[in-house]
Deep mutational scan, measured.
Amino acid sequence: TTVVVGNKKYTFDNPEAAEKFAKKVAKKLGATVHKTNGTFKVK
């Protein structure tokens, strides 16, 4: 599962961990999490 934050990509074996990370980053940046085909995008 990939999490994309700006131009950085983070890969997780565990989708739950990926989602948690994405939400944490989004909260910090005041952004939102978008899920597309198993990829979480923070923007």
Score class of each variant (00 low, 15 high):
Gly38Thr: 05
His34Asp: 09
Gly38Ile: 03
Lys23Ala: 09
Gly38Asp: 07
Lys8Cys: 14
Lys23Val: 13
Ala17Asn: 09
Ala31Leu: 14
Phe21Asp: 00
Asn14Pro: 02
Val3Gln: 01
Phe40Met: 07
His34Met: 11
Ala18Lys: 00
Val25Gly: 01
Val33Cys: 05
Glu16Gln: 12
Val4Tyr: 14
Gly38Tyr: 04
Thr39Gln: 15
Glu19Ile: 08
Lys28Glu: 08
Gly6Tyr: 14
Lys28Val: 08
Ala26Lys: 01
Thr32Pro: 04
Ala18Thr: 01
Thr11Trp: 13
Thr36Ile: 15
Lys24Leu: 12
Lys24Arg: 14
Val4Cys: 11
Lys23Arg: 13
Gly6Asn: 06
Asp13Val: 11
Phe12Glu: 00
Tyr10Gln: 01
Glu19Lys: 07
Thr36Ala: 09
His34Ala: 07
Val4Trp: 15
Val5Leu: 06
Val5Gln: 01
Ala17Glu: 11
Val5Ala: 03
Lys20Glu: 10
Lys41Gly: 06
Val25Thr: 06
Asn7Leu: 11
Lys28Met: 11
Val25Gln: 05
Lys35Leu: 13
Asn37Lys: 07
Thr32Asn: 06
Gly30Ser: 06
Thr11Leu: 13
Glu19Tyr: 15
Val25Phe: 04
Val5Asp: 01
Thr2Met: 13
Glu16Asn: 11
Phe12Asn: 00
Lys24Thr: 09
Gly38Pro: 03
Phe21Asn: 00
Thr32Trp: 05
Thr39Asn: 15
Leu29Lys: 03
Lys20Val: 10
Gly30Asn: 08
Lys28Ala: 13
Asn37Trp: 04
Thr36Arg: 06
Phe21Glu: 00
Phe40Gln: 03
Ala18Glu: 00
Lys8Val: 08
Asp13Ala: 13
Phe21Met: 03
Thr32Ile: 09
Lys8Thr: 08
Ala31Asp: 03
Ala17Gly: 06
Lys27Arg: 11
Thr11Ser: 10
Val42Tyr: 02
His34Cys: 15
Phe12Lys: 01
Lys9Thr: 13
Ala17Trp: 09
Ala22Thr: 02
Ala31Trp: 15
Thr11Pro: 05
Thr1Met: 08
Pro15Arg: 08
Gly38Phe: 04
Tyr10Trp: 14
Gly38Leu: 04
His34Asn: 06
Phe12Ser: 00
Glu16His: 12
Pro15Ile: 10
His34Arg: 06
Asp13Gln: 12
Gly30Phe: 05
Asn7Phe: 11
Val5Ile: 11
Thr39Leu: 10
Val25Leu: 12
Val3Tyr: 01
Lys20Leu: 11
Tyr10Ile: 05
Gly30Thr: 03
Lys20Asp: 09
Leu29Glu: 03
Tyr10Thr: 02
Thr39Phe: 14
Val33Gln: 01
Glu16Asp: 11
Thr39Gly: 15
Asn7Met: 11
Lys24His: 11
Phe21Ser: 00
Phe40Asn: 03
Val4Gly: 03
Thr11Asn: 10
Lys8Met: 11
Val25Met: 10
Phe12Asp: 00
Lys35Gly: 05
Phe12Thr: 00
Glu16Met: 13
Glu19Val: 06
Phe21Lys: 00
Lys9Ala: 10
Thr2Leu: 14
Glu19Gln: 06
Lys28Arg: 12
Phe40Ser: 03
Lys28Gln: 10
Ala18Cys: 02
Ala17Cys: 08
Asn7Arg: 14
Tyr10Pro: 00
Gly30Ile: 03
Lys28His: 09
Gly6Trp: 11
Val25Tyr: 04
Val25Asp: 00
Lys9Phe: 11
Val4His: 09
Ala22Leu: 02
Thr36Pro: 02
Ala18Ser: 02
Glu16Ile: 14
Val3Ile: 03
Asn14Gly: 07
Lys35Ser: 07
Tyr10His: 03
Asn14Phe: 07
Phe40Arg: 03
Thr1Asn: 08
Leu29Phe: 07
Thr11Gly: 06
Val5Trp: 05
Thr39Lys: 06
Val3Asp: 00
Lys23Pro: 00
Asn14Val: 07
Lys8Ala: 09
Thr32His: 07
Thr36Ser: 11
Glu16Leu: 12
Thr36Tyr: 13
Thr1Phe: 13
Thr36Leu: 12
Ala22Gln: 00
His34Trp: 08
Val33Ala: 03
Thr2Val: 13
Glu19Pro: 01
Pro15Gln: 09
Val42Lys: 01
Lys24Asn: 09
Lys8Ile: 08
Thr39Ala: 13
Lys43Phe: 15
His34Tyr: 14
Ala26Cys: 03
Pro15Gly: 07
Asn37Val: 04
Val33Gly: 01
Thr1Lys: 06
Lys41Arg: 14
Thr1Tyr: 14
Phe40His: 04
Lys28Pro: 03
Leu29Gly: 03
Lys27His: 09
Lys8His: 10
Pro15Trp: 09
Asn14Ser: 11
Ala31Thr: 07
Lys9Leu: 10
Asp13His: 11
Leu29Val: 05
Lys41Pro: 03
Thr11Phe: 13
Thr11Glu: 08
Thr2Pro: 06
Glu16Lys: 13
Asn37Cys: 09
His34Ile: 15
Asn37Ala: 06
Lys9Asp: 04
Asp13Phe: 10
Ala31His: 06
Gly30Ala: 04
Lys23Asp: 08
Thr32Phe: 07
Thr39Cys: 13
Val4Ser: 07
Pro15Val: 11
Ala22Lys: 01
Val5Tyr: 04
Ala31Glu: 04
Leu29Asp: 02
Phe40Asp: 03
Lys20His: 09
Thr11Lys: 13
Val25His: 03
Val5Arg: 02
Gly6Lys: 06
Glu19Cys: 07
Lys27Ile: 09
Thr32Tyr: 07
Thr32Lys: 09
Lys20Ile: 12
Lys8Asn: 08
Phe21Val: 02
Tyr10Ser: 01
Lys8Ser: 08
Lys9Ile: 13
Thr2Asp: 09
Phe40Pro: 03
Leu29Trp: 08
Tyr10Glu: 00
Tyr10Leu: 04
Lys35Phe: 15
Ala18Trp: 02
Gly38Lys: 05
Ala22Arg: 02
Thr32Asp: 05
Lys20Gly: 07
Asn37His: 06
Asp13Ser: 14
Thr39Arg: 07
Lys24Cys: 14
Ala22Cys: 03
Lys27Ala: 12
Lys27Asp: 08
Leu29Arg: 04
Phe21His: 02
Lys20Gln: 11
Lys9Asn: 08
Thr11His: 12
